[in-house]
């Protein structure tokens, strides 16, 4: 059984894993990172989206062994203590969630799309979220939240808040 080393939300784990173990099952069943849920079998729904070395991936479509030596950030690793990530706040403020099952993946995908466009248009947001399905919200408020989160993140990126910015750039 391969032994892997993986950092999840800042904590480094060494685990012996079956080659077929899915990253999402490693997170949920072995490491207790149940904040990341599973919604499908085919990589369509995006509920299980996490950051792998800073880029969004669907953790149901990655083997745990493929994450060997990598850094994973889940929804549980976004907040700084009790201070939520601006995107978490924006989802709350804009009522961008109802049942909340898609929310962890949606937030990770939202943060990811801002890497390329810190001030995305509605269309850019909709395209950037095409791999994440929500059944409750009709997406209107999610789109609003992502744009709000984007604005708040760029305001925070002001030089005088360099320290916080550093954290945001690194973790999400």
């Amino acid at each position: 059984m391969p032994r892997i080393t993986v950092t999840v939300d800042g904590i480094t784990y060494q685990e012996d894993v079956e080659p077929r173990l899915l990253l999402v099952h490693l997170l949920r069943d072995r490491l207790g990172k149940t904040g990341t849920p599973i919604g499908c079998d085919t990589g369509n729904c995006g509920a299980c989206t996490v950051m792998l070395d800073g880029m969004s991936v669907k953790s149901c479509s990655v083997l745990a062994v493929q994450a060997d030596g990598n850094d994973v950030v889940t929804i549980e690793g976004l907040a700084h203590g009790n201070e939520w990530h601006p995107m978490q706040k924006a989802f709350h403020e804009e009522h961008a969630l109802q049942c909340g099952y898609c929310t962890p993946g949606m937030i990770m995908a939202a943060i990811d799309l801002l890497r390329d466009d810190p001030d995305p248009s509605e269309e850019t947001v909709r395209e950037g979220l095409e791999g994440n399905l929500c059944r409750c919200t009709g997406y209107c408020n999610i789109v609003r939240a992502v744009r709000r989160g984007a604005r708040e993140m760029s305001q925070r990126s002001m030089p005088e808040q360099a320290e916080q910015t550093e954290r945001e750039v690194r973790t999400p």
Partner: peptide
């Protein structure tokens, strides 16, 4: 092709 997360992998 697919969506951003899939394109990352």
């Amino acid at each position: 092709v697919a969506d951003p997360a899939v394109r990352h992998r």
